[in-house]
Design a protein around this nucleic acid. Structure first.
Length: 709
DNA sequence: CATAGCCGCCTTTTT
DNA sequence: GGCGGCTATG
């Protein structure tokens, strides 16, 4: 068997595959056959007599887990090995050891939309102003704390400035809200699991016995909580194998700590290190460019990508006038490649921010090119999907207030804000949950007859649904969709409703698939698993269409032809990072482009636009500084008056002259009477055809020049 | 209580 | 430019 497995493997790959006991670090550059090595390794472990159920492999996305399961399956090693993401594993562990973790196993998993609602409540409960304490900011801060395993008490003692002290209060308040709702957010999953293991050596021992071999992919993107968790999971045997590439660390903003991989040999002094430096994916042309770029990072161990393929096509850097031209140019290149026999499913377009997909989409539609947008969440954040899932969540966890509030009047059933407020204050007074208060609605004096009976029938309906939660998910979901009135309300909503119904049907068929395939199917498991899914996981690689995605999503994928758009300063690197003098973030942006480039097998096109409309403003751009680091003949120099846009105060202020014809979005056509040039504060006086004359701040007016005088 | 329309807020990347 | 939340109105 060893011979069969080792065929077609290089010596270093073989070493990584067949080294069995003890800690193992696989430093795998892009395109080095890492996935292959891991799956072979799983097969080799099983081949050497280890039970599949004693193997636990952790991937970065659910999709990667699916693929690994499949590939391991083709090597005859699928059944029994636990392959999932950190988050999925945490859900399993927390459910199993709920008592010791101090939680209720029926917990809901809160995604970012739910989190946002909770943090708003928390900020409000602390009597803080949302302008000074923006929810998104607070959430980010809390996320960092949790990822670093800082609990409320220890943060309280170390908080010495006003902001930290305030944050400590919000932290406590936020956690109370989640605890009351019996909910955990994404960060809590890791946090609670890490603490569970830290506090319970017996659990570590038991899990160490269950998972005798731990493999972690994309180790460079693990955060502190994941690191601690991993450490404790293998504390009894040290059979840990991690793979990763420091040059592909692109999740620092999410708490990923590149030091985890850099310090692996310190953490496990007897570690075996295998380097996979050969690249089997890309042409030398592409690798050279990637090498040149990444060499600009200071904080890095020098490393060369070793090409194995013959020389291929030149890398193309194309300038365009604006993003529309760029998208059109891209579409034309795609067509040309297709005519030469290339397949659209082997092509991908990468961009820095999701909002850039729109223009590309329009160009692709116009040119009749099939495409697929691979986006972070999308499907599960649709209103109709969230609504239906909220019904299901209530059945498992009636304390889930976010879900309950979502559906109590969806579809409209006459339970409005006033009624809800009354029930809520009753719940607070009686110190009972919102759901229990609903059940006791008939006892609430402040409610009149009508709302009381409406609440009663709502509660009755939910109780009815609760009766058959034991069976399959799909029929239950369908039943609830019907009986709750959701379906009817969508049917009455016309065109949009039709679309929504289609989405719900898609959800139901996905649920049917779950019913058939899940290891341990239950409504609880379904809901907990589904909340960890994103659209990236559903991305379909088999049909003929160009994939459009962010550079972050591109990690782990490969395509024959890659297009990277928007290589402009402020976008890549993104202004939010480069305006800082924080060099670490600049290096991460560089790694992001490195990841993008190294996805390409043979064709690489990078483009930028000289003008780009961002949030409705046309801005003059300059090419990304990274373009000059690629080491290829990039002669396109910035024109005279290119300048940088780093915030809203430095925009391009066009010049106007009297008698010029302009159009205003609201006031219509008009003639310029006067133009007072004061740079950012320029004022323009326009007489509109409607008769009125207005002085406008040019900065805000968004005038369109119709005709030059 | 529901609906429509308006205002103001936010706007990088994602498990 | 887009969404959520608020308010005024039916």
């Amino acid at each position: 068997m060893q011979n069969a497995l080792s065929r077609q493997l290089t010596p270093s790959q073989k070493k990584a595959v067949f080294h069995v006991e003890g800690p193992l670090l696989i430093l795998a550059g892009p395109g080095s056959g890492k996935t292959r090595v891991i799956t072979h390794r799983i097969a080799a472990l099983i081949d050497s007599g280890i039970k599949p159920s004693n193997i636990c492999a952790i991937t970065f996305t659910n999709k990667a887990a699916d693929e690994m399961r499949q590939r391991a399956g083709t090597l005859g090693a699928s059944a029994g090995a636990h392959i999932s993401t950190f988050h999925s594993l945490c859900v399993r562990i927390l459910r199993r050891y709920a008592l010791k973790a101090g939680i209720n196993p029926n917990f809901s998993v809160y995604d970012d939309a739910d989190q946002k609602k909770c943090i708003k409540q928390a900020v409000k409960a602390c009597e803080l102003d949302t302008t000074n304490f923006p929810p998104a900011r607070m959430l980010e801060a809390l996320s960092t704390l949790k990822n670093n395993l800082t609990d409320i008490d220890s943060f309280k003692t170390q908080a010495d400035d006003f902001f930290s002290k305030t944050l400590a209060k919000v932290y406590a308040s936020y956690q109370t809200i989640l605890t009351d709702a019996n909910a955990l957010d994404f960060d809590d999953l890791l946090f609670k699991t890490a603490f569970l293991l830290y506090n319970h050596p017996d659990v570590c021992a038991e899990l160490g016995n269950r998972f005798k071999f731990l493999l972690i992919d994309e180790y460079q993107d693990t955060n502190h909580a994941q690191y601690k968790m991993a450490k404790n999971l293998v504390s009894t045997h040290n059979n840990i194998c991690v793979t990763g590439d420091p040059d592909q660390s692109i999740y620092g903003w999410r708490g990923a700590d590149i030091r985890n991989i850099l310090a692996f040999e310190k953490d496990w002094p007897d570690a075996t290190v295998v380097k996979l430096e050969e690249n089997f994916r890309s042409t030398p042309n592409i690798l050279e460019v990637a090498d040149n770029l990444i060499a600009a990072n200071q904080k890095r161990k020098p490393k060369k990508l070793i090409p194995t393929r013959p020389t291929g096509k030149d890398i193309v850097i194309s300038p365009f006038d604006d993003e529309i031209e760029e998208a059109q140019g891209l579409a034309e290149q795609v067509k040309e490649l297709t005519q030469q026999g290339a397949s659209t499913k082997d092509m991908a377009v990468f961009y820095r921010v999701n909002s850039m997909s729109r223009v590309l989409e329009e160009a692709f539609i116009k040119n009749k090119i099939p495409y697929q947008i691979v986006r972070g969440v999308e499907f599960y954040s649709r209103k109709e999907i969230r609504d239906l899932l909220a019904y299901l969540k209530i059945l498992v966890n009636p304390n889930d207030e976010i879900a309950l509030l979502r559906i109590i009047n969806t579809p409209a059933r006459g339970i409005g804000k006033t009624t809800i407020d009354k029930v809520r204050s009753y719940a607070t007074r009686q110190n009972i949950t919102f759901y229990d208060a609903l059940k006791k609605a008939h006892q609430i004096d402040s409610l009149s007859k009508a709302p009381k009976s409406k609440i009663a029938s709502f509660v009755k309906m939910i109780d009815q649904f609760k009766k058959d939660t034991a069976g399959h998910i799909a029929p239950l979901a369908e039943h609830i969709f019907n009986e709750s009135g959701l379906e009817k309300s969508l049917k009455d909503a016309g065109k949009d409703g039709e679309n929504a119904i289609e989405n719900v049907n898609e959800l139901i068929s996905a649920a049917a698939q779950y019913d058939e395939q899940a290891e341990d199917p239950s409504l609880l498991d379904y809901l907990q698993q589904i909340s960890l899914f994103s659209d990236v996981d559903v991305y379909d690689t088999s049909t003929e269409r160009v994939a459009l995605m962010t550079l972050h999503c591109a990690k782990g994928l490969e395509f024959e032809n890659v297009f990277i758009v928007g290589a402009e300063d402020g976008l890549l690197p993104h202004e939010r990072t480069s305006s800082d003098d924080d060099n670490d973030q600049m290096e991460e942006e560089r790694r992001l482009l490195f990841v993008g480039i190294t996805r390409a097998k043979s064709g690489l096109n990078i483009s930028y636009a000289k003008y780009r409309t961002i949030r409705g403003q046309v801005l003059r751009t300059i090419p990304s500084p990274f373009l000059f680091e690629l080491g290829i003949d990039f002669t396109e120099t910035p024109a005279e008056n290119h300048y940088h846009y780093d915030d809203s105060t430095s925009q391009d202020i066009p010049q106007f002259a009297p008698n010029q014809m302009v159009r205003h979005k609201k006031f219509g056509l008009g003639t310029v009477k006067e133009f007072i040039d004061m740079g950012q504060n320029s004022v323009i006086v326009v007489q509109f055809t409607s008769g009125q004359t207005k002085s406008l701040m040019l900065r805000y007016a968004k005038l369109e020049i119709i005709e030059n005088s």
